[in-house]
Amino acid sequence: MRPPSPSIPEKEFIQISLQQSLRIDGRQMLEQREPSITFGPELGWVECGLGKTKVIAQIEAKIVKPTPERPYEGIITIHSELSPMASTEYDTGRPTEEEVTITRMLDKVIRRSDTIDKESLCILAKRRVWHLRLTLHFLSDDGNMLDCGCLAGIIALKHFRRPEVEVIGDDVTIHPPTERAPVPLAMHHTPLCLTFAFFPPSPTSDTTSALVLLDPSYLEQRLSTGLMSVALNAQRELCVVHKLGGVPMEIGEVMGVLDIAVKRAKELNRLVEDKLEEDWNTRKRIVEVR
């Protein structure tokens, strides 16, 4: 059953307060909820949260035979499914439009933007490569699951270490973590996803440009007249820009949104690096670092 859409009073209340630059959770218009990042006991297990939105990301690696089309490249697969656990809105079975958008965006941000150096995952050409499997569990939905999922996925990849492999001739030896320190994945860059929501301006104001807010909550996401997702790294490189329909915007407005994203991505990147380092310091005693 489809849950009821937000009621008319809810809709009006949110719109009127946004026109006065007020959000129901007390945030500024361009303020992101502070991401909460928790690492699990294993490497490559991360729980990431934006407010009440929670996603768990987990990485597994195994050795497989490469595909004949790409014999020198490792394989990365992303598994994500919105189960009814996240919200009563999602059902198992046929994917909803939102789910298609989220999975496609995750695929573009994490896999197609060349985050991981796939050739470094090759062990023996045409015979043995690493297969990385990223599983995302969406635990609860309080809006903006895409950003949360991307963040979790990227942090998990950065946190993960694969066992060291030695190749002598045709012999492949896999060293268990107790013997040799596991190695991090070779990553080209760290794309971070930021989603903006747009609302129509108040009819009394003389501007025609839409109200922009970062990191929409559940209700804001449902009621917005358009979303724009931008994935970029701290080096000011855009990886994915995704604005589908919704309110039409002027060129200047779009560039303005991108400028905000550039600034925020830098801050977010620093936060991610700090968290990873903090976690790594607690692990040094357990895992030997080279």
Binding site: K108, R112, S113, D114, H189, M228, E237, L238, C239, V240, V241, H242, K243, L244, G245, G246, P248, M249, E250, I251, V254
Partner: peptide
């Protein structure tokens, strides 16, 4: 005004 922008590469 712009209604759609998509980009998938760096």
């Amino acid at each position: 005004k712009i209604t759609l922008v998509t980009m998938e590469t760096r």
